[in-house]
Write a protein that binds this DNA or RNA. Sequence first.
DNA 1: CACAATCTGAAACAATATTTTCAGAACGCG
DNA 2: CGCGTTCTGAAAATATTGTTTCAGATTGTG
Lengths: 306, 306
Amino acid sequence: MVHTETCGMRLKKGRIVTSSTDSIAEILRESFEKFTRAERQLADSLLANYPMSGLGSITAVAQEADVSTPTVVRMVQKLGFKGFPEFQRALRGELQARISDPIAKRETWAEGAPDAHILNRFTESVIGNISQTLAHIETASFDATCDLLADMERSVYVVGGRITRALADYFFLHMQVLRPDVTHIQSISNAWPHYLLEVKKGDVVVIFDVRRYENSTLKLAEMAAEKGAEIVLFTDQWQSPIAKLATHTFSCRIVVPSAWDSSIAPMLLLETVVAAVQERTWETTRPRMEALEDMFDRTRFFRKFT
Amino acid sequence: MVHTETCGMRLKKGRIVTSSTDSIAEILRESFEKFTRAERQLADSLLANYPMSGLGSITAVAQEADVSTPTVVRMVQKLGFKGFPEFQRALRGELQARISDPIAKRETWAEGAPDAHILNRFTESVIGNISQTLAHIETASFDATCDLLADMERSVYVVGGRITRALADYFFLHMQVLRPDVTHIQSISNAWPHYLLEVKKGDVVVIFDVRRYENSTLKLAEMAAEKGAEIVLFTDQWQSPIAKLATHTFSCRIVVPSAWDSSIAPMLLLETVVAAVQERTWETTRPRMEALEDMFDRTRFFRKFT
DNA sequence: CACAATCTGAAACAATATTTTCAGAACGCG
DNA sequence: CGCGTTCTGAAAATATTGTTTCAGATTGTG
C-alpha cells in the first residue's frame, strides 16, 4: 500500500557507491564529477526542479535536458539503478515520504505488538476509513447541516436503526443538552408513526442508516420528506436508498477486518457536528449546560471528587 | 521548463464539466456520485493517498485499486481527460504546484477546507487520541480480556453510565450475537441490584466509566467485585476509581476541541474486542449469526435488495 | 421472471517508452 | 597529425504501457 523504496546502493565495480539513506539529489550531486558532459547536463536539469522533472517519461526527461534517451539510461545505471523505471520509482518513493504526513509514517499503533496483532490491523483500517470518509465530505454541506441543527426554530428528530441505534442515541444525548425540541425516534419501534404526526415543514430529521438498510427507516424517511422536513442522512459508502430524499448525505467508510462494520467514522462526524453546533449556539447553550450541572450537583448523582 | 497544466474542463456531452480551478481531488469527489462501482473503488484508491497513487503506470494504478485498466481509462475520460497520460500530466502539474508552495505543505484531512475548519481540527485531535490510547494498551491485557469474553462458561454483564450508555449498548448489541449469557445493566436505572443477584464468581462485568464518574456505577462495581466477578473497565486517562477493583483496565484519551469528550478511542477498542472475540468463538458464533440472518430474512425486516 | 440497459475485465491491439546497437564525433596524447 | 579511447545520439529492437473490443456479469424494470 505505502510505497517504500530505498535509494540506489550498488557495490559493483565502476558503479557509484552510496549509503542507502542518501536522497537521490545527494547522489546526483556527489557523483557529479564522475559524469560526462552530457550526463552533467542531465543531472543539472534533474536537480533544477527536483524531483518533479524526473517524473515524466524518459523521453520527456531527455528532451528537457536536451540530451538523448540513451544518455539518461546510462546515467541512471551509473547511479546504480537497474533501469530508468527503477530510478523513477525511487524518485516517487522519495517524493511520497516528503509530502506524507507524520501519521502515515507510523508503523505500528500498539507498540511492542507485532504488526499482525489485531489491535494494529484494526486501527490501521479505521484510520484509513477516517481518512477516506473525510476525503468525501463536502465542507459546505457539513456547515449547512450544522446551521440547520443550530436553528432553534426547527425541531430536530433523530432516527436510528437496529445497529445504528447506539449512534442515534449518542447523538440525541448531546443534542438534547445543546438545544430544545430534540426527539429520538426508534425506527424499529412501532410507535414511530405517532412521532411523525409532529413533524412540520422545515424540521430536521437526522437519520442513521447503514447497510442492511431497514425498510421501516426508509418508509419513515419518505413520510418525513412528504411533510417537507429537511433530511440529514448518515450512511455508508454504498448509500442507503434514503440518499435520494436527503438534503445532506454523509457517506462513511465502515469496512474493517471483522465480521462487523465499524461505526467509528460516522461517530467521528457526529461528534464533530455536535462540536460545531455547539460553537454556533453557545449563547443559548451555556445557560442550559449550567442548569444541567446544577441539577447534577443537587442530585449527588455524580461523585464530586476523585 | 516548468510544468504548468490546468485541470480538465471539457464541455463535451456526457463529460463532467468543472471549473479549471478545481483540483483533481475535488473533481474526483464532485463526480463521485456519477461513478459506477468500480470507478468509485478507483476514485477511493486515488484519494486515499493522493496524489501519489496516481503517478505510477496505469497498470499499477489499476492494481492498487483492484480494478481493470480499462476502468481507469474510462474514468479519466469521464473526468474530461483525453487519456490516462493527460490525466497523469495534470496530476503532476498539481503536485508540482503543491510542492513549490511552501505554505501548502501541511496535509489536511478534509481537503479544500482550511486547516482551521473544525472537521480538520477535530479529526487531527481524534487521531492523536487514538494514537496515544493505543500506545498505552498492554496487548497481553487486551488478549486476556478477549479470552475472558470468549469463555462461554462465564456470563457477561455490560454496564454503562449516562453518556457511556451508548457505548455499552453498542457493545452489548454485538456481544449478544457472538455468545449467549450477555446482559446489559443500566447503572442509572434503579433496577440494577436485581441483575447483580445473578452475578457469580468468574463472571465478567464490562464497565464503561468516564469522567463525571458515577456513584452508582462505583457501587455496582464494588458489589460485583465482592461476588468474585472479573471486572473489565473502559475509562478515560484520569481513570475511574473502579480501576482499583478491575482485573483489566483500558484508559482512553478523550479530549477534543469541544465542550464534550470524544468516545472514539473507547469505541475503537470496543470494536476491536468484538472482532477479536469473534475470531476466538467463530465455531460457536457462526451458527448463531446464520440463525440471526435467517430470522431477519423471514421477518422482512430489512430490504433484501438495493 | 424475462428483458434491456449498463457495467466490467480478459484479451487483442496500438502506441509509447526503454534499452541496445552501432557508427561517427570529440577528445587526449604521442 | 594519426591513433586509440571515450562519448554521443540515430535508429533498430524490445518491453511495457495505454486503448479498444467484446462477451459475460450485473442491475434495474416491466
